[in-house]
Design a protein around this nucleic acid. Sequence first.
DNA 1: CGATAAATTGAGACCTTTCAAATGGGGTGG
DNA 2: CCACCCCATTTGAAAGGTCTCAATTTATCG
Lengths: 263, 263
Amino acid sequence: MGVDDASMTETNPVRQAAIHPAAIRCAECPLRRLKVFSAMDREQVDFIQTLKSGEVFVAARGTVFREGETPERLHTVLSGWAFRYKTLPDGRRQILNIVLPGDLVGLQAKLFDEAPHGLEALTELRLCVFSRARLFDVFRAHPAIGYDVTWLGAREEAMIDETLLSVGRRSALESLSAMIFRLVSRGVALGLGTAANMPFPLTQTHIADALGLSAIHTNRTMGDLRRKRLFALSGQTLRDVDLPRLMEMAGITESGFDTRPLI
Amino acid sequence: MGVDDASMTETNPVRQAAIHPAAIRCAECPLRRLKVFSAMDREQVDFIQTLKSGEVFVAARGTVFREGETPERLHTVLSGWAFRYKTLPDGRRQILNIVLPGDLVGLQAKLFDEAPHGLEALTELRLCVFSRARLFDVFRAHPAIGYDVTWLGAREEAMIDETLLSVGRRSALESLSAMIFRLVSRGVALGLGTAANMPFPLTQTHIADALGLSAIHTNRTMGDLRRKRLFALSGQTLRDVDLPRLMEMAGITESGFDTRPLI
DNA sequence: CGATAAATTGAGACCTTTCAAATGGGGTGG
DNA sequence: CCACCCCATTTGAAAGGTCTCAATTTATCG
């Protein structure tokens, strides 16, 4: 096992994972070809390229950073699934949101010096790394990109608002419907899969922690939903997801988000 | 009764409330004197002044904007309490966060064209109004202010993350402790009152909707907390709030936020 | 093919909710 | 200044959704 592999499988890192200089060039970023991401000037893409200090790989189940740490980096997810979370002193955990490719993470940590939440990988994760210190430079040199950063922040907040509505006011059945609906919708938009076949690396414990439920009750509720044929779950993949009915179950009226910037 | 008074007491406005041109000048804004707000260059303050198109007053219990509307404005709260909320088709409501003086609201609505949440006044509200269309100009002309906008957005998200942790993983007793703690801390920082005496315009139904509880259970839980002498509540004011013990009850370890920008 | 983690299933306890109804406070009209 | 009304707060009692504890079965991984 080489050094790099060690850093990839490290679940409890004393230091941060090594940055790999060999990296995809922003102009060729496969994400940028997706239509969920709005077009961007060549000049801006080139500027973003100058900010990119490399890439980091984190193994499935690995920790990117913990609550209270001061991560030196800001990342955009290139591929893989992850989640942001907070915990209580006795260990109870709340998953704040699921992070997918194209999502910008670490903004709060950047602004507050101390991350108010942790970030953990669900699958192997490939992250684009930006140096922490240069964020303000971005705003100065390219106001449009600064505006985009704000946009992405507002979008993330809107997603959390939705989750808060679920956790606070929806029943377990409704919450779960809403979560599956949103996740599959996002996955489809990102080309990760289809409603008929979508990779789903979350464990029932993750779902429970995201919805404020116990793992056991999550299990029973998923059973209900499957029996109702709202989706099927085999191994780590979701099949035959009935988006329209999930939407109705959850009381969701707007389908979701439009295009967004990619930084 | 004049036209202005009518617009103030309108609870169900077909149009938006009238903008009052007579307004406090930003340089003399009383909020700016508080030490929670970071110092700002005279030049920037003057620029913000040029963005300010007036002020709006909303009566207690009045609606500022609803879910799905397209508010033409962006506001900073000058005085008063309000809350952001979302609802489900059958009327269940989740309060997302409590809005206090200095908070910037409507950013999401601005970015998404359609507000994903509503905003309602708890007390009489005085809002500083910025025109919707000029937000990007701000980023271009004053990158530092754009950066501040992002900061405020990230701060709000961090607050919602905390609430999500409460609603998802804290017991009713813990959630309520956390809520009172945060609200009183914020109120003290803003000079709205002290731990010994703080105005508290929320109804138990509001608290219930913010914490995902029923109003009845909220009532019983508040009774417990009062019996434990963590605070007293007479009319619309909170007295003798025991911040340290509330913090411990809620499992909160960091006291909160530092200074922040005022826009 | 063991070893460990995840998913299930059963059963009873418990926190919260719902349904009902009483009490209290504040505002309004007389 | 008082009667009356509406809304928020309380309190009681029972139903119910979720949780915890335990144990079993089924995947996953080296």
